[in-house]
Amino acid sequence: MAGSVWVVVEQWQGQINDISFEALALGRELADALQVPLEAILPGPQCSTLAGQLGCADTVLCADHAALAEPIPEVHAAALADLARQRQPRVVLVPATNNVWGVSTLLGAILGAPAVNFAIDLKASDGALEARCVLYGGKLETRVRLTKEPAIIGLWPGARPADQGRSERQPAVEQVPVSVPSDVRLRLKRYIEPEAGEVDLTREDILVAVGRGIQSKDNLELAEELAQALGGEVCGSRPVVDQGWLPLSRQVGKSGLTVKPKLYLALGISGAPEHVEGMKNSALIVAVNTDPQAPIFNLAHYGVVADALELMPALAEAVRARKG
């Protein structure tokens, strides 16, 4: 329906991603405020089998097309653009995940529509749409007004609790035809399973997480000693893995693991949104960083403004003394 709020639902290996439910929760609030329907766009073959989970939406539009089976950005963007031209939504919420990275930008380019990234909130203000977006590694936020429609919103994880977007209600389901480009120059050859780590970090109660602040690979030894004293394991943020200091199997965050330990000790980690996504639900977060403005302190339960390299040996020693 023209003027409706759209949420593009992302499925991964036959399951709907949590971020899609988060987007539905936010979309529901916005649609109610604007007094327009909330429509969930579900792309992919046999997508109607998943539609029943999307009761938060008034209607599920199933774009059941074989070409949408794989995450090819230009195909998904073209299909969404075709559908948007047919039905004229007011706003399109697109989850900002690696799987569909670039789709919201391409959709905006195809439609000549404004597209913003890294949004964590969206509301109607005096009849206009206003988004709040995270920039500069979580250090700043910007509020923007979208003055053209449709507005394309790349939604960052955590905008709303996923459970708020789940509903037992059965939505109306409509099959919608979409056209996709015929000359696609990108194809998926194979999926690659995660590298098996020597331990399953998602099952660990205590994680000692290191970031760029540990400065060099040699200093990992301090983190390993601390983890050993605590009875935990070492993991890290993206820069540490990119530097080759830790293997990919120990990366926590957007591309890596999502963990919920009883203790997450964040050492020299700034708290960029990509990392926070993977550890925000830890029961106890203690953060150590030299930068008092580091975004990790907005999330942590306890914080220390200090050099992790100085604190690690002292903490390992104190833990050992305590344990006898």
Binding site: P114, K139, L140, E141, T142, R145, I285, A300, V304
Partner: peptide, 30 residues
């Protein structure tokens, strides 16, 4: 189609309780 209204430090729901002292003192508190 995008009008920037403001840029600021994040609106946060809460902030960590900060632990202060020497490394040994902070280690003891942790």
């Amino acid at each position: 189609g995008i009008e920037v209204l403001s840029m600021a430090k994040p609106e946060v729901a809460g902030r960590a309780e900060m632990l202060e002292g020497s490394p040994e003192e902070v280690a003891g508190k942790i």
